[in-house]
Simulated assay, not measured.
Amino acid sequence: MTLISPACRDALQNWLDGQRALAGASENTIIAYRGDVGEFLSFMTLHHGNSQGLGALERISISDMRAWMAQTRAGGTGARSLARKLSAVKSFYRWLAERAGFEPTAVLATRSPKFQKKLPRPLAEDAARAVLDTVEMQSTSNWVGARDVAVVTLLYGCGLRISEALGLKGADSPLPASLRIIGKGGKERMVPVLDAARDAVATYVRLCPYPLEAAAPLFRGVRGGPLHARLIQGVMARTRMQLGLPATATPHALRHSFATHLLSAGGDLRAIQELLGHASLSTTQAYTAVDTARLMEVYDRTHPKA
């Protein structure tokens, strides 16, 4: 970042502020944007051999873009990560061009590298049930075990992101029939709460040794502070080792499992999109590919060979 001119640094910060305030980008997204666009601007400074003011950014050519992409790939960045970096750079340039009044054609016309999209990796239904039954065994404290069960039940039973589950407050208990969740980008959705999830949270609340104030986090660490995601990730890691599940059996895989199992049971794709809080249906449609892939696996295993 020290290679970037003050004018470019200020422009980047203003764009990031807008992404945070207007687009509702999460702090992790802001950090990724800062790194991706900052690396791009630093490369252009070195590539041209002098400090790149805003005027120089207007003159970036397709050749410059190809040089940046080639250098990034040569540094070990995969096609998927490069596509993410290019998307961030394009977003920044759209914003900058609109304010500075230039045509960002060379940047926006740059083609994203092709890559094979990864399908979600859900657990099988029996494996998901085994996780729910085994999670509490990872703790010697009854209330901590109940807490972990409550969190993973929300992930699998309601399709919550781990950040959404850990973002619940004391005022959310006892859980209502439907939870109002604020997801990525500030997108709001209503999520039905299964009796199993409601009961699991109620058990945790009854056993929790700390007072649960309305404005304080619902889920607490062993010392009474907010529960951190890495602790649930660790619980899932120990659980999957005990059950012999693959490394893909993570907390987020429970959310994938929620969607895939709903779809397998005949759930409507649009309804699942709403439950997950996906902005685009295309994101949810990945689960149809998972369902088809599983169907073909069963077909290959069971169909009589000629």
Rank of each mutant, 00 (worst) to 15 (best):
G244N: 06
R198N: 10
K85L: 06
P217H: 09
V191R: 07
R294Q: 15
C158T: 09
W68T: 06
G159V: 11
I30L: 15
A88G: 14
G75I: 00
I4Y: 01
L54I: 03
Y299L: 02
R73A: 14
M44L: 14
R230Y: 12
A56L: 06
T105D: 12
T105C: 03
S163D: 01
V37D: 01
W95N: 06
A25G: 11
I4M: 10
L263M: 11
F92W: 00
E125A: 14
Q52C: 08
T284K: 00
L179S: 09
R66C: 00
Q233L: 12
R230H: 12
T140N: 09
A109K: 00
V191F: 09
G244Y: 02
H252D: 01
L262Q: 14
T239A: 11
S163V: 06
W68L: 03
S178L: 04
V135W: 05
L269K: 00
L57E: 08
W143R: 01
V152C: 05
G49A: 10
H261S: 00
I232D: 01
P304V: 13
I272V: 14
L82V: 11
A74F: 08
L108P: 07
H278L: 14
A279K: 02
E103Y: 10
Q19F: 03
F40T: 06
G234L: 03
G221R: 07
A271Y: 08
L194R: 12
H252W: 07
A150S: 13
R240Y: 10
I232M: 11
P304E: 10
R59Y: 10
S112I: 01
R189T: 13
P209R: 13
L275P: 03
A177K: 13
L119R: 08
T72D: 04
G221Y: 03
M296T: 08
Y210S: 05
Y93G: 04
R294F: 11
F102G: 11
D300Q: 14
T302S: 04
P113T: 13
G244M: 02
T77G: 06
A74K: 08
P211R: 13
R94H: 03
Q19Y: 05
S81Q: 00
T45V: 14
L41K: 09
F219Y: 04
L166D: 06
L207Y: 13
P122W: 04
M190H: 14
N142E: 15
V89A: 05
N142A: 15
A21V: 13
G224D: 12
P251V: 12
A237M: 09
R161E: 02
A109Y: 01
N14F: 10
V191G: 00
T45W: 03
L119W: 10
D300T: 11
T140G: 15
E297I: 09
Y204P: 02
L96S: 04
L57Y: 11
D10Y: 12
K184Q: 14
T45R: 05
S63C: 02
R240H: 08
I272H: 05
G53Q: 08
L160R: 05
R180I: 14
G157Y: 03
L276Q: 03
L276D: 05
I232A: 05
K118P: 00
S282F: 06
E98A: 13
T292G: 04
L227F: 12
